[in-house]
Every structure is written in C-alpha cells, then in structure tokens.
C-alpha cells in the first residue's frame, strides 16, 4: 500500500472527473473525515485516514482490500474503474440515465444500452460523457451520443457504452 504518484493521481482524477466533473473536489476535500487514495496491488482504494492507518499494520501479501476499491491500473498504466466505485459516482454524478425495466436485464448482462431502453436522460449530455445508469439496479457507462443526437436515432442504436454494472458482482468474482 502506498500513496499514488503524480502520474497515477492524474489518471485516476481524469477518469473520475469524466463522471462526476468538479464534484471530484468533494471526494478529496471532505468535511467529515480526511480520506485518501491508496494503491495496493495495482488497485486504487479510497479509504479514510483512520482506516488507512489501521491497514498499515497488515502485511502486504495478507492485505486483500481496504476502504472502497475505485478501480485498477492496467499493465499499460491505464486506469479502469470498477463497479465498486459506484457509490461515490452515483452520489456525485453530473449526468444520469434512467433505463426502462425491460432494458435492465440486458444491461446487467453486460450489454450496451439501446435507445429503445432509454427511459430518461439528463438534459444536454454531451457524447462520450461518463454517465451513471439508474433504474432498480445501477451501473455506469459512457454515452455514445449527445442528448440532441439521440432524438433522431433509431431505436436499436447504442446510447450508452457499457463500462460496469452491478451484475459484475455475480459475473466476475475477482471484483473486490
């Protein structure tokens, strides 16, 4: 476990800012308790300072997880968000999408969101914007098109590229 380097912080912040924009400040500058980002086995954890100090006493090979896993660094140095980051993304998300009940299951099986399944969308969402997908179950993805464009699209066009969803808790057991 170690703090992120500047390059790593940049990658993490850039990815988070795609979803929550300037609300990222609220993650760093919290009124209740100091929180910090920690890297452990290529995974980035968002952890309160008190918890982090407790975690220091655990030997590195024995430490599986602490705090909230936001995502992980790939071998090529890119940062990928995990579904476990949803709590924080949903809380601060700038752009949201609600999908109809008949679109829930396809999304939870890891598919993209089609226009036909779109229930509601935040106004003036630009394209390639990170969005949080709401319904009875949640996940997040990246918009394929802007809100203006979606008006003219046919029902089978992809609206949201799938990134992660709560179905991953069942599908991918490695998710911490």
């Amino acid at each position: 476990m170690r703090p992120l380097t500047e390059d790593e912080s940049k990658a993490v912040f850039a990815k988070l800012a795609n979803y929550i924009g300037k609300n990222l400040v609220h993650l760093i500058d919290r009124p209740d308790e100091p929180y910090s980002f920690r890297l452990h086995k290529d995974r980035v954890f968002y952890v309160s300072e008190a918890q982090m100090r407790l975690g220091i006493s655990v030997a590195r090979p024995n430490l599986i997880s602490l705090g909230t896993c936001l995502g992980k660094f790939t071998k090529s140095g890119k940062f990928k968000l995990h579904i476990t980051a949803l709590d924080y993304l949903a809380q601060y998300a700038k752009y949201k999408i609600w999908i109809k009940p008949n679109g829930e299951m396809p999304f939870l099986y890891g598919n993209h969101v089609l226009k036909a399944h779109l229930g509601r969308i935040t106004e003036d969402t630009p394209e390639h914007q990170g969005v949080v997908v709401f319904s009875m179950s949640d996940g997040f993805g990246v918009t394929a098109r802007s809100t203006v464009d979606t008006r003219k699209l046919d029902p089978t066009a992809i609206i949201v590229f799938h990134q992660a969803d709560v179905g991953e808790y069942l599908r991918d057991e490695v998710c911490p």
């Binding site: 703090p3 380097t5 912040f13 100091p34 910090s36 920690r38 220091i56």
Partner: peptide, 26 residues
Amino acid sequence: KRKFNPTEENAEDERKASLALLSKIE
C-alpha cells in the same frame, strides 16, 4: 529508483497536493 511518498503521510498535506493537482489538470 522510483521514490514514493511514505504511506503514513499527513492527511492535510496529501489533501493539499491532490487539490493542487486537480486545479492543475483543470
């Protein structure tokens, strides 16, 4: 060798560094 900050860093310093980095990115 790469040099990492100590794990047990002062939270206040870390917060300031993060905010500075964020404003720089913006």
